[in-house]
């Protein structure tokens, strides 16, 4: 019955959408309204971005500049949404037991001592030699690559979101290979929660800083006197980089928090 209703609803909706498809511009048309604006009317804002980004910000990658500068409000609140999702998973799943706290800090100290803890708390004590050794090689490279992506968001594809996800994935790999304890030993729970909040705080703080120079919120050009860049364009470039750092902090910690809570049902012990 449910499937019948679903099929009827899908057929009706699909027919309406396919009927509307005819009004769309041809695929790949460079002069369609979204690409070049209405003929005889206003020019599309993407043309403005393409022509002015390098002059305004000295950032060759148009996507990074539009993301962090022209549409900074959008990205600020998207970052806030990601932080909210991390807090929501924490609130839904996290189980805090007072007795277990001492044991968990003990295992964390063991993990901090530099060795991958090859035994899980389920006591099987399997030595995953191949996985552990491969991880020891891959994880530092993945983290280096993550920082490279964050730092090279200006001249090449990349930025805070991509680099943050890669950094978060490196911690997830650590958790998959050596148990969640070895990953939590490197990025403790209180640390990643603080890091997530600090990311949004850095983003909003850079925006607020420009208010003190009697400019608009998130107008990084106002920081040229503070950063000693000599021109507003380079100040915007550095402002974009600071914002991307904040985004990367939030995304890294929220991605790791999601995996840590989901893979242990909020216990933060044992792991998969």
């Amino acid at each position: 019955m449910q499937k019948l209703f679903a099929t009827i609803a899908v057929i009706i909706t699909g027919a309406i959408l396919l009927n509307a498809v005819e009004d769309f511009p041809r695929f790949g048309d460079p002069h369609s309204p979204p690409n070049s604006g209405v003929s005889g009317g206003s020019v599309s804002s993407s043309v403005h971005y393409l022509q002015n980004t390098y002059l305004d910000t000295r950032v060759p990658n148009v996507v990074t500049a539009v993301l962090a500068d022209y549409r900074g409000y959008d990205t600020l609140f998207e970052t806030a949404v990601i932080l909210t999702a991390g807090i929501a998973v924490f609130a839904i799943l996290r189980v805090v037991r007072r007795k277990d706290e001492e044991e968990s800090t003990g295992s964390e100290e063991k993990a901090c001592s530099g060795e991958f803890s090859t035994s899980d708390s389920d006591g099987e004590g399997r030595h995953r030699v191949v996985v552990g050794t491969a991880c020891r090689v891959v994880v530092p490279l993945a983290q280096l690559f993550g920082f490279y992506i964050i730092a090279h968001g200006h001249p090449s594809p990349g930025g805070g979101f991509q680099g943050g996800v890669v950094l978060g994935t490196s911690f997830i790999l650590l958790a998959l290979a050596g148990g969640l304890g070895s990953a939590l030993g490197r990025l403790r729970e209180d640390m990643y929660l603080r890091l997530a909040c600090l990311g949004v705080f850095i983003y909003a703080g850079i925006g607020l800083l420009s208010l003190f120079f009697r400019r608009n919120f998130l107008d990084y050009g106002a920081l040229s006197g503070l950063l000693q860049t000599g021109g507003e364009e380079m100040a915007r470039s550095h402002g974009i980089f600071g914002v991307e750092l904040g985004v990367a902090m939030t995304v890294t910690s929220v991605m790791f928090a999601l995996f840590a809570n989901l893979s242990t049902r909020g216990e933060l012990k044992g792991g998969l």
Binding site: N61, Q162, G168, T169, S263, L272
Partner: peptide
């Protein structure tokens, strides 16, 4: 390219890991 980069890390990486974690539990 930027969207492809994000999807390569998120769609092919994280979302699969999160789903498998939930299915295991």
């Amino acid at each position: 390219v930027d969207v492809a980069f994000t999807e390569a890390t998120v769609g092919a990486g994280i979302s699969g890991a999160l789903m498998i974690a939930t299915i295991f539990k």
